[in-house]
Write a protein that binds this DNA or RNA. Structure first.
Lengths: 213, 213
DNA sequence: TAGATTGTTAATCGATTAACAATC
DNA sequence: TAGATTGTTAATCGATTAACAATC
């Protein structure tokens, strides 16, 4: 089945399945079932079977899914069976925290360039790692091309985010993980995902309401 | 209309509306319309009108919505017309970056305690701000009660996240923003939202596929 | 008034669930 | 074999959209 035929809402669940299956693999489990996964994730077993079946039958009747096979299949589907070089744009607290984060490597991503516009930051090395030298913004197109970077994490202040996003797109990058708390306007074909903790906090305070603590 | 009657998918859009409307307000706009908001957010105008109408009619036929009124209404609905005291649990790179972040205040949240289990971090002050002294984990129940903290941001390594989440819940906190890349098992009535950048990156690489850069 | 936009209803669309034959 | 679980179909459920009367 072709990517275009997969509902986006299903695509959004696949990384969650992969994360769960990886956890099972690390825990030494060899076999799982849609029921077990569903209980664990709070998703119905029917939905998990239906989602996975869009990509072919990975399971075995009567038995379930072989954890390692399912993990590899999900990695292939999401194209994280190889590493993606990623750029961080913005070397403030958040950009640096992302650059320090050790959790990308095992899941298909490698931070291999950090950019900032502040001249006093240019040339600094993060963690003394020479692969993580801070580059000036105007080197983005060149470095992106040289390092085959197709994904960027945008971690600049909200007021600069739209402009910097345009620079990222001009550099040929078509996938942006936006940490700035604004909606980005981007051309067709550019993928944007948003991370804004306040959006998530407000989602919860709706339900917390004015109950007594 | 009662909170329980509002579909969760609608609740999830309300903070996005609030963010957009706040931007319009800051840009000095006084009136907007479902059409304008929809174009800006990539959502249909019908959906915006329907979502908002669940909470009463804030608009005016022929005119649209008064930006400031809509902003206040959304703040009330999400209960961010007053500040929520929030705890950060985990004072690593990410926890510290969150503690430094200046964007919570204006949107209804105030970080007023940071916790960690590492004894060498206890007592340190973040930014020399005495309100942000790092407390030991076992003071969580006491401090949460004293400061009326009902929301926590969980920023500890994945392998400790489930255990620490249980401590947070035992301290009486029922809303957790989980930055650890694992699914949390929590009792009924505890709200959890997840932030995991890799999930969002993998969502995008599904579409990027193996096209040529 | 004429033009515009809301709030709301009914129609459509799509996603989830239930159920079960197939089969390990 | 008996028990279990998949993959898939049909039924249900819920969300989105289209359309328009109301009205500013």
């Amino acid at each position: 089945m072709l990517s275009e035929d997969i509902p986006d809402i299903v695509v959004g669940r696949l990384p969650i399945y992969l994360r769960a299956v990886t956890q099972l693999a690390n825990a030494g489990k060899e076999i799982t079932s849609s029921r077990e996964l569903g209980l664990y994730l709070g998703i119905s077993s029917a939905q998990i079977r239906k989602d996975l079946s869009l990509f072919g039958g990975f399971g075995k009747q009567g038995t379930g899914y072989h954890v390692e096979t399912l993990r590899r299949k999900l990695q292939q589907i999401l194209h994280v069976d190889e590493q993606w070089p990623v750029a961080i744009v913005g070397a403030g607290d958040l950009g640096r925290a992302l650059a320090h984060y050790r959790g990308f490597q095992a899941r298909g991503f490698e931070v291999c360039a950090v950019f900032d516009s502040a001249s006093h930051k240019i040339g600094q090395q993060i963690d003394g790692n020479e692969r993580l030298t801070i580059y000036p913004m105007d080197m983005l197109p060149e470095v992106a091309q040289a390092k085959n970077i197709r994904v960027a994490m945008l971690a600049v202040p909200a007021e600069h985010a739209q402009h910097v996003a345009s620079l990222i797109i001009e550099a040929g990058i078509r996938a942006i993980l936006n940490y700035a708390p604004i909606n980005l306007i981007v051309p067709e074909g550019v993928h944007v995902q948003y991370i804004d903790p306040v959006i998530e906090l407000q989602h919860m305070t709706f339900y917390l309401g004015n109950q007594q603590p």
